[in-house]
Design a protein around this nucleic acid. Structure first.
Lengths: 342, 342
DNA sequence: CTTGACCCTCACGTAACGTGAGGCCCCAGT
DNA sequence: ACTGGGGCCTCACGTTACGTGAGGGTCAAG
């Protein structure tokens, strides 16, 4: 099924001019050009357009989108996950802004003059709508409230950059120690809140100015991620078979950014006293097992070995906001799943 | 309390450059300039900035915002109401898009290849996010699905424009008949759905190209509104005292656009089988009484006369999506309110 | 063949600021 | 009084992602 530029534009709600522009800058090149020069788009083009639109909605410039799509591609399911997370952010912000406006309307309807400071806060929230943190959230973000955290984090960024400048690779023990420190710092800077982690990540992705100031370039972030994976695989190696390790080497860390939203939801379910046998908890547990099996495979013996590693090595969980309460909760919810026929 | 440009920018989440720009184009002029040329902003500036931000969020260009703010100003409470409505739209759209993405993720996670037509629909929704109607909604919008409706509406727009060109005023019977026809046409074009009315209104406000094509200029819209109010006041005059009429003359129609969101919510509550004594229904009823009292005052005798007028004159409700079921529901919910101590 | 809808490339223009440059203002500390 | 730091001013070039025409070719149905 090939679509002309007009058809694709209509179906996607874009303009022909936009698609021309994307073609011109090499962002989305139609797979076929007719003898007359007509652009024809196929399924792969649609997938790529989906990726482009998803990143656009995250606020990236077209140039940055081009860069992001020039390397190895994230699985589309992960892209969609990211979108869902972003929409959740926006829904939460919208609800918050709505509450503020309802409050302001109440004051106006009563003939009251709004408190100026309160009013300015509402104006700020109007501007921050679709931005990252509400003023209230900023108050609970250690990275924002504790200058020591920011100082220490900057020092760590410098240390990582130095290691990179020295030509360190993710397999170097130094790099792995730095990555471990990074995770500890993440936990410290976010107060252990994985939802904040996703937001900081979004901010750093979306705000080039911030990226420059923080020094957390994409290369640096990737270096840390790879060092972390390498360091953790080294730990796992003490517990797993060579066969296990082959699989882990291929799959571990592949869905690194899918875990924090899930963990955030689980923590919320626990905070809301949702019973572990509730369908919602079961869905979350199902998702957990899905992610787990993606790197661990399906062999129960491997699972047991991995669990043993997690139990004995706190470094495997550092900064992930996964504690014993959460693991118990997941275990119970998974047991409920086990009673369901496959 | 006067704010410098930097303080205001920080408090509102804008940039100094933005405020300079607004000053340069005459959109927001600081109330005071110091001897050194420093800009100082006061409470009235903050109110105006709120209006500007609200209209910006509705998607108006700065030029259009300037025009909108150059005439008589809508009460700020109404501006806020409008914002709330817009946020509700966005929340609904976001929820819809989320569902689509969750579905798509499910397919991807199962290793399925998404159905291309379905996928394109999702891409369109991604683009229409923050636009006006989902594809599904378009299918249920008579204005979109029934070419006769569009033709008839265009003819009515021409008729109104002709009346205006002839120098008709809202007090002319011709104008009032046209306004009545307009309301009938609104009901016909939206299928009696007040949520659609709000959206059409937003579209017409925000899309200058659409406004040009439809002929529904702001002047025309205002002419119709004023003619409608005048026509309805003429009906009420048969039932009310001169004292009543004096109040009605001042207040009736002042919150015209606050009613449709409330009516939409009430219809939704009825559809969801929310009992009339539910706190949610009671809040809606409270809001109803608030709007009612805003033009009717607090005298029960006046209320009874107004209700009599509504009961006998179908033209007073034409196009408003208020039917007997909804009125019964509101009556029950209001009775529940009456049992609450004031 | 005609017509209407759609395609192509080219290229000027746009809206809402972003970013420096160069210089003045204000206030607190020494 | 001076200094330094933070903030203010105006001016002006630049940016991003298209919007809008112009001029002309393509395709399919009548």
């Amino acid at each position: 099924m090939l679509l002309t530029v007009g058809e694709l534009a209509r179906r996607c709600g874009l303009t022909v001019r936009t698609l021309h522009h994307y073609d011109t800058i090499g962002l989305l090149t139609p797979s076929v050009r007719s003898a007359a020069g007509y652009r024809h788009y196929d399924g792969a083009n649609i997938e790529r357009l989906h990726r482009i639109q998803a990143l656009r909605q995250l606020g990236l410039s077209l140039a940055d989108i081009g860069k992001a799509l020039s390397g190895p591609l994230q699985p589309l399911a992960e892209v969609v996950d990211r979108q869902i997370t972003q929409i959740d952010l926006e829904l939460a912000e919208g609800t918050r802004l709505r509450e503020r406006l309802v409050h302001l309307r109440g004051q106006l309807a009563n003939g009251q003059s709004p408190d100026l400071a309160d009013w300015l806060d509402t104006l700020e929230l109007m501007t921050m709508y679709e931005k990252y943190f509400s003023p209230e959230e900023l108050k609970t973000l250690p990275l924002h409230t504790n200058p020591d955290v920011l100082t220490d984090w900057s020092a760590l960024v410098s240390a990582v950059q130095s290691a990179m400048d020295r030509g360190a690779t993710p397999d170097d023990p130094d790099a792995q120690i730095l990555a471990q420190q990074w995770m500890t710092m993440v936990g410290r800077g976010t107060g252990g809140n994985p939802a904040f982690l996703m937001r900081l990540h979004a901010m750093n992705e979306n705000e080039p100015g911030l990226r420059e100031r923080s020094g957390i370039t994409r290369e640096l972030e990737q270096f840390v991620e790879q060092s972390l994976v390498a360091g953790r695989l080294a730990i796992f190696e003490r517990y797993l078979t060579p066969h296990d390790m082959q699989r882990m080497g291929e799959h571990y860390g592949r869905q690194m950014y899918a875990w924090p939203p899930l963990i955030a939801e689980l923590r919320q379910a626990i905070a809301d006293h949702v019973p572990a046998d509730d369908p919602h908890a079961q869905r979350l547990a199902s998702r957990w097992m899905e992610l787990f099996r993606a790197y661990a495979g399906d062999d129960p013996a491997t699972h047991a070995r991995i669990r043993q590693a997690y139990a004995r090595e706190p470094d495997l969980r550092s900064g992930s906001a996964v504690d014993d309460t959460l693991l118990d909760y997941v275990r119970q919810a998974v047991e409920g799943l086990a009673h369901t026929p496959h």
